[in-house]
Computed example of a mutant assay.
Amino acid sequence: MQTKAAGSDVPRYYQLMLQQDLLGGWMLFREWGQQGGRASTKREVYLERDAALRAFEHARDAQLKRGFHVMFAQGFDGPHTG
């Protein structure tokens, strides 16, 4: 996800990735920052897919409310932004 460039402001981005680990759990990776600048990351571990998917959707929806726009989606059923 990315914000639109406004004047001289550098666009910000927020990336979410959900991935199954080797033991059957799920990891939600988050990365955010300004394009061309420093990035911050966070990793959360979930035992069940449904809990991980709910966390992913909650994080996505929160960023959409903050003005981010989906730029690229891959996996599952794609984004549900409605």
Rank of each mutant, 00 (worst) to 15 (best):
1 M>W: 02
2 Q>M: 13
2 Q>W: 00
2 Q>R: 13
3 T>A: 00
3 T>C: 01
4 K>L: 11
4 K>H: 11
5 A>C: 08
6 A>H: 13
7 G>I: 11
7 G>Q: 08
9 D>A: 15
9 D>N: 15
11 P>I: 03
12 R>W: 09
15 Q>N: 14
15 Q>Y: 13
15 Q>H: 13
17 M>C: 03
19 Q>D: 12
21 D>A: 05
22 L>W: 11
24 G>H: 08
27 M>E: 15
28 L>N: 06
28 L>S: 05
29 F>Y: 15
31 E>K: 13
33 G>P: 08
34 Q>L: 04
36 G>W: 11
36 G>V: 10
37 G>L: 11
38 R>T: 08
38 R>Y: 01
38 R>M: 06
38 R>P: 07
39 A>M: 04
40 S>N: 14
44 E>I: 04
44 E>H: 06
45 V>Y: 15
45 V>H: 15
45 V>M: 14
46 Y>R: 05
47 L>M: 04
49 R>L: 12
49 R>P: 00
50 D>H: 09
51 A>K: 12
51 A>L: 10
51 A>Y: 03
52 A>Y: 09
53 L>I: 05
54 R>N: 13
55 A>I: 07
56 F>A: 00
57 E>K: 12
57 E>Q: 15
57 E>N: 15
58 H>L: 13
58 H>C: 02
61 D>P: 02
61 D>M: 06
62 A>R: 14
63 Q>P: 02
64 L>M: 04
64 L>E: 02
64 L>T: 01
65 K>C: 04
66 R>D: 09
66 R>E: 12
67 G>A: 07
68 F>E: 03
68 F>N: 03
68 F>A: 03
69 H>K: 11
70 V>D: 07
70 V>T: 12
70 V>C: 08
70 V>S: 04
71 M>I: 07
72 F>V: 08
73 A>E: 14
73 A>P: 08
74 Q>V: 11
74 Q>R: 15
74 Q>E: 13
75 G>S: 09
76 F>M: 09
77 D>F: 00
78 G>L: 09
78 G>T: 06
79 P>M: 04
79 P>V: 12
79 P>F: 05
81 T>P: 00
81 T>L: 13
81 T>G: 01
82 G>E: 06
82 G>D: 07
82 G>S: 07
82 G>W: 01
